[in-house]
């Protein structure tokens, strides 16, 4: 299940859906939910604006889900990502991975969120309570995390 939407999502319902989809097959379901947090300790975030590349976004997320499904024998997998204007503490992203064993489910879930952060065409603009706003820069640490996953063949094209 791959969804890119402006509306909020129900992480409980998504978890229940993954559980139902993989009933009997999955011994473990690991989910991750990302929230809008304050950008720094000293400045509160008022709005996080998320821009995306429609079409390519869904395509990249589908490919990542396929990679994870093959690599860790997932019985079900979901990625839901919001776009548009988000408020402080809003949900941004949901990732869920169901597999026979917890090790595979944990790894698949972590891979999906790591790879998504450096592959899927989303861009964040922070608007601080002070009125200052700026486009968030990609962190080298995030790239390093994605690279640690041993990079499938088409992973290499992600970064120069």
């Amino acid at each position: 299940m791959i969804i890119v939407q402006e509306a909020d999502f129900d992480s409980g319902a998504l978890q229940a859906s993954l559980r139902a989809q993989s009933a009997g097959a999955a011994g473990a379901l690991v989910t991750f939910t990302g929230y809008v947090r304050d950008f720094s300790e000293t400045e509160a975030t008022s709005t996080l604006y998320l821009e995306h590349y429609p079409g390519m976004c869904e395509q990249v997320l589908t490919e990542l889900a396929q990679q994870a499904t093959e690599r860790w024998q997932l019985s079900a997998c979901a990625i839901v990502h919001r776009v548009g204007a988000l408020a402080r503490a809003d949900q941004i992203v949901f990732v869920g991975a169901a597999s026979a064993h917890r090790g595979d489910a944990f790894r698949a879930c972590e891979f999906l969120i790591d790879a998504l952060k450096t592959r899927a065409p989303f861009w964040k603009r922070e608007e601080l309570a002070s009125g200052r706003s700026f486009w968030v820069q990609q962190k080298d640490a995030d790239c390093a995390r994605t690279e640690q996953w041993g990079t499938a063949e088409n992973q290499g094209a992600s970064q120069q």
Partner: peptide
């Protein structure tokens, strides 16, 4: 054409080329 590309890619007529900074989703 909606696929990540290196700078040495050859762009042809009719291609859709997106230009952007490194992505920051998640």
């Amino acid at each position: 054409n909606q696929r990540h590309a290196q700078h040495d890619i050859v762009i042809q007529a009719g291609d859709e080329v997106a230009v952007f900074e490194p992505v920051t989703g998640g």
